[in-house]
Amino acid sequence: MEKTVNKIEVRDLHKAFGRKRVLNGVNLTVGKKESVVVIGGSGTGKSVLIKCIQGLITPDSGSIKVDGIETVGAPRKESEKLYATMGMLFQGGALFDSLSVWENVAFGLMENQKMPRRQAREKAVEVLRQVGLGADVADLSPAELSGGMQKRVGLARAVATRPDIIFFDEPTTGLDPIMADVINDLIIDSVKKLGASALTITHDMASARKIADRIAMLYQGKIIWDGTVAELDRTDNPYVRQFVNGSASGPIKVEI
């Protein structure tokens, strides 16, 4: 059998902030065109994990391979080429508020691919249409948009450069259930269209079930369970059961 290279391969990743050990030996793989969702409670290090993969945080030890190439400890110039193939939808949108909506969407196109402004604007309007926004919002400033619209613009910005890997940080948090489902559909749609791999972190189980090919649960700095959505419903892992059912009693103790 031919050995296939995983898109992302994280091995034994450790990261501590002061005395607080956030990641404590994380192992996780994301295959080509696979959509993996990492679930876990607030403050379990989900964000730190994806920031390590994107090179925004330097891990203490461990290995992160992207397309089979090691990025931990690699020269910045080389890993930057890999980081350039990634896109990210931030939890709060993280839209640049000094720029208009279309300039946000076209940012990667103009700054890196050196696309001329006029052409970049056309492209941005096209991507905005894909996420269900009309050309009339293109010249607005991000502050004038509702939360759901900001998420859409964030999604448009993340996919505009046609990345191979897209990260979604709590894509449905803070949205009403209907808008959350719209965003889920858009995520599935845009990931499929691009043929990209996706890594999502969330604690919204409805969203996780909908967009995941595979779900992994992060608890106390480790991936303690990993499987498909169907397996999620059959597992007798008490931690996963408690989290999925959203129960206050069980092995997971909430630090108050």
Partner: peptide, 10 residues
């Protein structure tokens, strides 16, 4: 997170 967003856009 706009500074992180800049980095992710290379």
């Amino acid at each position: 997170e706009q500074i992180d967003a800049l980095s992710t856009l290379s």
